[in-house]
Amino acid sequence: MTFRSIFFIVFLISFMGCKEEVLPKPKAMLRLEYPEMASKKLEVDCAYAFEYNAEANLKLKKDCSLTLEYPEMKGALFISYKSVEGNLTKLMSDAQKFSYEHVAKADNILEQPFVNEADRVYGMYYEVKGNAASQSQFYLTDSISHFVTGSLYFYTKPNYDSILPAAVHLQKDIRHIMETMRWKD
């Protein structure tokens, strides 16, 4: 062996031996923090009123339907109003059918009844888990005159893992809307 080859081998071994030990990176999850909800009263000339997140942009339509847009989360809550005219069973059936249209893509749909006897507000909240188009729907009624439905959508292709933090945050807003719903009679 020549001096050159010995020098090359020693250089190669010393170069290869100076590397730091490679350690696997721990699993981590993206941490998204959303501001605490600041409530704002809905002040429109409609048959209902509620409190909603002040971060949302309100867009009202002529028929008392509205959209609450959440630009930071690229999502929107669509709320519709209908008068009950002897068709409560059909309205409730349509709302339930609409929620279960997502069953093809959903992993699970949780139903949570809502009852506020004091203010005559009754309804159902549907939480959709999985890659469905809408992550939450609800309906509220007084069983006599008023019927309100709501659906949460994001302006993106549904990927449950990606939109889950925003969906959970907005589901709290939806529950707050349901809890503060009042009928104007």
Rank of each mutant, 00 (worst) to 15 (best):
E111W: 01
S14K: 01
G123N: 07
F3Q: 10
Y125W: 09
D142R: 03
M16S: 07
M37K: 02
A95W: 06
D119H: 06
P158H: 00
L12F: 09
V10N: 01
I13Q: 08
D173L: 07
L164K: 10
V103H: 01
E55G: 07
A104H: 15
G123M: 04
F11E: 10
W183Q: 04
Y125G: 02
G17W: 01
S93R: 09
M181T: 11
N131C: 03
G86S: 03
F11R: 01
N131T: 09
P35A: 04
Q171N: 09
I9H: 03
W183H: 02
D63I: 00
L110V: 10
F50C: 04
D161V: 12
K82C: 02
V22L: 06
I174S: 00
K19I: 11
P35T: 05
Y122N: 03
T141G: 06
A56L: 13
S80V: 15
I177K: 05
A133D: 13
S136N: 15
E51T: 05
V168C: 11
Y125V: 11
P165N: 05
A106S: 07
Y160P: 03
V121H: 00
L42W: 04
V115S: 08
M29E: 11
D63M: 05
K90R: 08
I109H: 05
A38N: 13
F98Q: 15
S136L: 15
E111T: 11
M92D: 08
K74N: 14
I6K: 07
L58Y: 03
K61C: 03
M92C: 08
D161T: 14
K172C: 06
Y52S: 01
Y139L: 04
E20Q: 10
S162N: 12
D119I: 08
S145L: 08
H169D: 00
F114H: 01
L66M: 14
K184P: 05
L23C: 04
E85N: 10
F7A: 11
E51W: 00
M29C: 14
Q137G: 14
K157E: 14
E101V: 14
